[in-house]
Design a protein around this nucleic acid. Structure first.
Lengths: 189, 189
DNA sequence: GAGATATTAGGACGGATGTCCGAATTAATT
DNA sequence: AATTAATTCGGACATCCGTCCTAATATCTC
């Protein structure tokens, strides 16, 4: 009756558990229970804990690439596009903080595990490239930009969002900090 | 012969273990062995794992507040001070990456554990306040700044360093990404 | 020096975790 | 309908973990 659904339900349960409690605080038994499935099914479908986590990470990566690509297709000028990107990120932090927590958590995991390192490294690479190409490439930017390569600026923008985001998450009343995200646009003024 | 030294050796060992392998991959037995001490000594001096980790976090916080305060006391203009701060951070990532990894790791821990949350939240608070007061307060900044509160800009600067730093750490050949840190100064051009 | 206190040492405990295995059930194929 | 393959289930396994307890040793006080 379940068929292929079973593995998808496990994947969704893993996603939910990890984004709620953190990868270090989640056991395979937690995930099995959340999925309404017997423990051994996780190994039947994903082989190991690492295999399951890998799939969750890939799922997360797809979401980020897709959603940010959408956000970056809005607007015309660099300033406009940056506004759309910032607003997307503010909305993400407010209405779907689990997705950001997942990114932060797995990025931390990737610091110590070479298996996950390349996955996350590639994601940051792709995201910064998207920012570079869609925001910083075509339009004629201010003279300030001539001192820094578009690649470096894109990395910094991505880092500013990420690093400001964690401060929002950390502070339960972080709504005020959300305004700090707008400050990224200072480079386009 | 050891006396008070014993607890300090445990603390140093914990610091070393966590900054090398990550808090999730370190057991009290690892720390005891690294310190050359019997397991039960950890509970004798620190009561529990949480108690020990708390002290390690406080030690880390002291280092950051002290070192960044020093970096921010250099230079005169906002642009100069920002350069000193960036160079301090680049030096940290290059020569003492373990300290940054520790910050990232514990910040992730603070997302899930309310016990550690306030410690890290306060650290980010203090650091952004230092940046605000020492860089953004006195001097007459460009007109761009009137659109954003100094508090928000400080948060964003801190976030940009933090978020760019993790990208450097993630990439084993991250020396190129180090240049992205310079791009933060684009807001002072 | 004797007694009290603080520290060190070693081991045991209950519980949790990832993994694996064999049987039962279901689905697919002929 | 019979045989084979795929899936589901329940439980066992070895191991590791944080914590706790008791005895031995060192340190300090008078």
């Amino acid at each position: 009756m379940e068929g292929k659904n079973q593995s998808q339900r496990i994947l969704n349960a893993a996603y939910k558990c990890i984004s709620t409690k953190g990868y270090a605080n989640v056991s395979l038994r937690d995930i099995a229970e959340e999925a309404g499935v017997v423990l051994s099914q996780l190994h039947y479908y994903f082989g190991s804990k690492e295999g399951l986590f890998t799939e969750v990470i890939k799922m997360m990566i797809d979401k980020y690439l897709k959603e940010i690509n959408e956000a970056l297709s809005m607007g015309e000028t660099a300033k406009d596009k940056m506004l759309y990107l910032v607003n997307f990120f503010k909305d993400l932090l407010k209405n779907n903080p689990g997705l950001f927590k997942l990114l932060y958590d797995f990025t931390g995991l990737a610091m110590w595990s070479s298996s996950f390192n390349s996955l996350l490294k590639d994601l940051f690479n792709d995201l910064s490239k998207m920012i570079e190409e869609k925001i910083l490439s075509n339009s004629a930017l201010g003279e300030n930009f001539r001192n820094y390569s578009p690649r470096a600026v894109a990395r910094m923008i991505l880092g500013a969002m990420f690093g400001t985001g964690i401060q929002v998450i950390l502070d339960s009343n972080g709504n005020e900090i959300l305004d700090a995200l707008n400050a990224i646009q200072i480079i386009f003024e």
